[in-house]
Design a binder for these strands. Structure first.
Length: 138
DNA sequence: TTGTGTTTTACGACCTC
DNA sequence: GAGGTCGTAAAACACAA
């Protein structure tokens, strides 16, 4: 079993982020959630085998998301040093931080495209209205 | 409840530098 | 090779019926 965090890190996180710690460390009698989710392999899909369903997705805490948002606000790109630092601060796997930034950039891009689309649509609508007005004048 | 749509986390494939 | 985008799977969540 390869855990993301060793005991020393756990102790550190438990001090800094009690909420995070309680989320990471399973309660008594609770099944310890897996480090990373499954994605059915093509072979598993083909065979219909669900036995490799070892991973379960876990939502990040509000605090973790806030910190990530602040960091994203500073800089959209993520150098490895910054990634490792953030991961250590938040008690996350650096891979999770990288994935979060990837997804965040994708959402940011979608939002920006939507805004551009709305701008273009508005100016197009205005042109159409103008055209109609001019035609009626003529 | 539960069926359904949306959001969030995670990954594989491919690309760029 | 590390880190990017893109497309998508699947868990988590919201909420009407």
């Amino acid at each position: 079993m390869n855990h993301t965090l060793d005991d020393q890190n756990m102790a550190f996180i438990s001090q800094l982020y009690p909420d995070v710690y309680t989320q990471i460390v399973p309660q008594q009698g609770e099944v310890k959630p897996p480090k990373r989710r499954r994605k059915k392999s093509k072979a598993a899909v083909a065979s219909g085998d669900g036995s490799n369903c070892l991973f379960r997705k876990r939502k990040l805490t509000d605090e973790q998301v806030n910190m990530l948002e602040m960091s994203f606000g500073d800089e959209h790109k993520l150098e490895s040093e910054r990634k490792d630092k953030l991961a250590a601060e938040l008690g996350l796997d650096p891979r999770q931080v990288a994935v979060w930034f990837q997804n965040r950039r994708a959402r940011w891009k979608n939002k920006r495209l939507e805004e551009e689309y709305n701008k273009l649509k508005n100016s197009h609508d205005n042109v159409v209205v103008d055209k109609c007005r001019l035609e009626s004048e003529v």
